[in-house]
Computed example of a mutant assay.
Amino acid sequence: MVGRSQVTSLGLSQVSSLGPSQVSSLGPSQVSSLGPSQVSSLGPSQVSSLGPSQVNSLGPSQVSSLGPSQVNSLGPSQVNSLGPSQVSSLGPSQVSSLGPSQVNSLGPSQVNSLGPSQVSSLGPSQVSSLGPSQVNSLGPSQVSSLGPSQVSSLGPSQVNSLGPSQVTSLGPSQVSSLGPSQVSSLGPSQVTSLGPSQVNSLGPSQVSSLGPSQVTSLGPSQVSSLGPSQVNSLGPSFQDVLSVPLLASHSPSLSHTAKQAKQTNIHAAICKLSCALSIHTYVYIYITKYMSPSLCYIMVG
């Protein structure tokens, strides 16, 4: 059996001349003893012959020495066998060479180990191949590194899998790149997590795609950030939402002063909404005393 020292002494031409069956017969310790230049001399067919345990034995410097064609030759099971430190050692060109099935084979911990520059190097087809659990494993810095074309390639189920902190990390340009079907897939808690600048970046077609439960989840500061064109596009949605429990989250333990303060903030937001709407819009607000739900009746004529 060829020892580690013998494997290390093989020249580049000798390594590249090894057949797939010879490469697959190497033990993990022999594979890990190969130098970066030896690993980079392996052809795609040789790399694809490596078993998961052999791939897992590669060190970060060996992994980073693989060329795009070598990385692309790895099967899903081989890609899945890479540890977090191996995944994080991949360069942007290596990451972009991964096929959709390879990207989909990455586990949540592997996806989470990708750096912002690696995430930004993913193509739209790679991003769309990520499963909901993979998307949910991305950290805020990773999410914020996605470009508009990457964000727009996310499917409704992927968008819906984003946590509140991930949604908050999206920049205005990323939010504005979301399509109507993506915006309509956002849950109430996701909509609530949007900051005023994010809400303000939504286009009329995005705003009009919001459903009743999404519209009612908007807070006073979010409503206040809406521009005239955005508010006018809300017409159909608001016609369906004839009663909105604005103070449903109030606690019975709130003092009368605290209730008045919250009612004042809500009233200010609704007044701004009323001013932004067309002259034919009438806003009627009925706030019951103490802890009865507040109802905002909005009629668009």
Rank of each mutant, 00 (worst) to 15 (best):
P212E: 03
P156N: 03
P196K: 01
S225M: 03
A248W: 14
G163A: 05
S149M: 00
S144A: 14
T257W: 07
S120I: 05
P44A: 04
P220G: 06
S13G: 13
V23C: 06
S25W: 02
L66A: 00
V191T: 08
T257K: 11
A258D: 15
V159N: 05
Q54M: 12
T264N: 15
G123S: 13
S125T: 12
S233A: 15
S255E: 07
I298L: 14
V71A: 00
G147F: 02
P188S: 12
S121T: 04
C296S: 07
F238I: 01
Q94R: 04
Y284R: 15
S185V: 13
M299C: 11
Q78L: 09
S109H: 12
S153K: 01
G43A: 06
Q126I: 02
G107A: 05
L26H: 05
Q182P: 15
Q260T: 12
G301D: 10
Q206I: 07
S294D: 11
G43L: 10
K272C: 02
P245C: 06
L122R: 11
G27W: 09
L130P: 01
L162M: 14
V47Q: 00
V15L: 13
G43F: 14
S105V: 08
P212W: 00
Q126F: 02
S181H: 14
G203W: 00
P52N: 06
T264W: 10
G187F: 01
S65W: 05
P204E: 12
H256I: 01
G91E: 04
S152P: 14
V300H: 10
G43P: 08
G235H: 06
G123I: 00
S85M: 04
L246F: 10
A258I: 09
G131L: 09
Q158A: 04
Q230N: 11
L12K: 08
N200S: 15
V215H: 08
L162Y: 00
L66E: 03
Q190C: 06
V111I: 13
P180D: 10
S32W: 07
S157P: 10
S105Y: 08
V231A: 07
Q22P: 00
S61Y: 01
G107K: 14
Q86A: 03
V15C: 12
S249L: 01
N265P: 02
Q126K: 08
S105L: 06
S128Q: 11
G131I: 03
V191Q: 10
M299Y: 13
S9N: 15
S16F: 09
S185R: 09
S128A: 09
M299V: 08
S65H: 03
L146G: 02
S85N: 05
P164Y: 01
S292V: 11
S209E: 11
L82R: 02
L154F: 01
Q102R: 10
L170C: 06
Q150Y: 02
N80G: 11
P172V: 05
N160C: 03
V175E: 09
P28Q: 05
H250Q: 10
V191E: 05
S224V: 07
S125K: 06
S105C: 06
P204D: 12
L242K: 13
V23P: 00
S292P: 04
S157Q: 13
I270S: 08
G195P: 09
G235F: 03
P116L: 00
S37D: 10
G19L: 09
G147P: 07
